[in-house]
């Protein structure tokens, strides 16, 4: 394989150990990862490949059942365009390549049976700084070889059905309830714990002007560039828990959104918190993309997530029906 910009193995994260300072990690766009796994008959939290931007290529040494979801990174198989958001069989000797970031910034490749790497502390997610999880605790490098586990019963059924087909499937998942890929997006947030401590002028600017995602952004955090945000008066905050989507404002006034590989605790004042339902769309934004923040209530945030989950359950059910009806 060729690693490209960055390719790591991720699942839905490593929970239960944050009190020891062990980060959660996991897929940046968890919805795309879940759908990729559902498409190949895996449990939705199975380990899959997270490919960032472009340049990654994989040589398959056996026929495999896969699905590609997430951002459109112009995937090809042996140079020919390949559809996303549907299960397919890739032949032994074929090369899957990600050529260019057309929209979004991360694609997910699921493998029938899942990637065969050991679970470390309950997860297959790669924790690069600690050198654990994923593929030998690191990002993938040239010539790395990994294997897939045995397909599940439904995965095997899908594999057999797809092997008989002479073309790709005519359907694909309608993904807009789960993730969007626009260059400028409105992201919904609830008020952060220290919201009241910011001056009114700053709060007005925060909600009315766009913030640009800087090139200094990665899986740990998105650094934003835009109107300066100031506190009414300086104050000392003791370190406390932070989470995916927490928007912190350090003393330079430029917000940082904490992402999948965030630390477990932080001490900067928090102006806002991205709602869970919008995290996948945020995680797909590229550097130079623009974000507008829109305030919603906690109640709206929770119903949005529950609604999305119901859509996910319906999708899982729909995919099962498709398989039982020969795709």
């Amino acid at each position: 394989m060729q690693p490209g910009m960055l390719a790591t193995i991720q699942d839905l994260g490593r929970y239960g150990l944050q009190k020891f300072g062990v980060i959660v990690g996991g897929a940046m766009d968890s919805n795309s990862l879940r759908i990729a796994n559902l498409l190949v008959g895996n449990v939705e939290g199975e380990g899959a490949l997270e490919v960032t931007l472009f340049g990654t290529s994989l040589l398959f040494e056996s026929d495999e059942l896969i699905a590609i979801t997430g951002g459109d990174l112009k995937p090809t198989i042996d140079g020919k365009s390949v559809p996303m958001w549907q299960p397919l069989v890739i032949r032994k000797g074929s090369i899957l390549k990600f050529n260019a970031a057309i929209s979004g910034s991360r694609a997910y490749v699921s493998f029938g049976g899942g990637v065969q790497v050991p679970e470390v502390m309950g997860s297959k997610s790669t924790y690069i700084r600690a050198g654990i999880g994923g593929f030998q605790g690191r990002k993938l490098q040239k010539n790395d070889v990994f294997e897939c586990n045995t397909r599940t019963e439904s995965g095997e059924d899908l594999f057999n059905q797809l092997q008989k087909k002479t073309s790709y499937l005519s359907w694909s998942v309608h993904y807009t309830p789960f993730v969007t890929f626009k260059k400028t997006q409105t992201i919904r947030i609830i008020r952060g714990s220290e919201y009241e401590r910011f001056d009114e002028e700053s709060l007005k600017k925060f909600f009315s002007t766009p913030y640009t995602i800087s090139t200094q952004s990665d899986r740990m955090g998105y650094r934003l560039e835009g109107q300066n945000i100031q506190l009414k008066e300086p104050f000392e905050l003791l370190s406390e828990g932070v989470t995916f989507g927490t928007i912190q404002v350090p003393s330079n006034g430029q917000p940082i959104i904490l992402m999948a590989d965030r630390q477990t605790t932080g001490g900067y004042p928090k102006i806002g918190q991205v709602i869970s339902a919008d995290l996948p769309a945020l995680a797909q934004m590229q550097a130079s993309g623009q974000v507008f923040f829109k305030e919603v209530t906690l109640e709206e945030a929770q119903w949005a997530l529950i609604h999305q989950e119901k859509e996910m359950n319906e999708l899982a059910f729909g995919l099962r029906i498709k398989r039982l009806h020969q795709l």
């Binding site: 929970y15 239960g16 150990l17 944050q18 009190k19 003791l238 370190s239 406390e240 828990g241 932070v242 989470t243 477990t264 605790t265």
Partner: peptide, 11 residues
Amino acid sequence: IEAVPAYNSLT
């Protein structure tokens, strides 16, 4: 899921 203790809070 889990609780994370800090100086004067738990998340």
